[in-house]
Amino acid sequence: MVSTELIIKIGQILVFPGFLFLIFYALFAEWVDRKFFARLQNRIGPLHTGWKGILQPLADLIKLLAKEDITPEAADSVVFATVPIILFAIPLTVMFMVPIIGPKAYISFEGDLIVILFLFTLTVLSVFMAGWGSLNRFGTVGGLRTSLQMLSYEIPMGVAAVGPAILAKSLSLSGIVAWQGRSMSLFLENPTEFSLALGIAKASVLALGFGIFTICMLAELEKVPFDIPEAETEIVGGWQVEYSGKKLALLRLGGDIKLVAASALMTSLFLGGPLGPWPIPPALWFLLKTILCVMIISNLRALFARYRIDQMINWMWKNLVPLSLLYILAIELMAVLM
């Protein structure tokens, strides 16, 4: 006998907040990113497909799916074919560990934050494999650049993500989100001067962490100023250069989901995830906050010119790593005080 509970569970995986919802939400996020970015640049952006071009990402996806799929003769065909699937699957997996419809994620266990960080590293390795496996000169350079870039932003990213975990005394995203909700309601119940001061101190330190994490996410997502691995004008798309048709469609969709996953992480770690001060459905809070994060990312990428790889590594190690160490020190102090 099939119980209703099982049907609901399957529905959750397949429809909401599972695959179908995530894919369409990712396409929506791409549209927001493109439209907002275009407006910042004094352009119009997608316009013709659907209301204000809202269906353009979907149309692009369908078009790419219908295109010819070419595998270069010299490429390592197994690696070449697997990487798009991996790059599509990883961000989806991450999304299942992020709380969306309530304070508890679909998959949640103590230490899932570590798994998420590991999965993000794995995407970089797959990108490197993609560049290397396609055996294109531009692809090779792109792959090398990706891994070089990872060496510089991974430490600040990990440190920034661990900050809230220390304060929450939990290494799971759901735990961190629950702690954020708890401390908010505690403060609302008993608003003394001391708790207010402590709250402001915590918020300002975590704001620093949010900044560091956002910069690292720009690098992880390969957006300007850190779009060095794909740098269209330099190495013609870098590691993606040989991909076409279905594989490229999958890569792009994977990239969109990664954008959502990155903003979901920013939301859950620093902005309270699906919880909010006013009683509107948690999923709506989550959507609002992630769209805000997507817009922050689009805004940042409209502001800068591309760094060169050596400048980027230099900058990361000289500025961001010390800053993140300072941040973790402040967090430790705070944890002791509490």
Partner: peptide, 16 residues
């Protein structure tokens, strides 16, 4: 030049 260094925002502004 702005486009070549990856500064597309400046590129669009100047061309406007």
């Amino acid at each position: 030049a702005a486009h070549e260094v990856g500064f597309d925002t400046l590129f669009f502004y100047i061309w406007r």
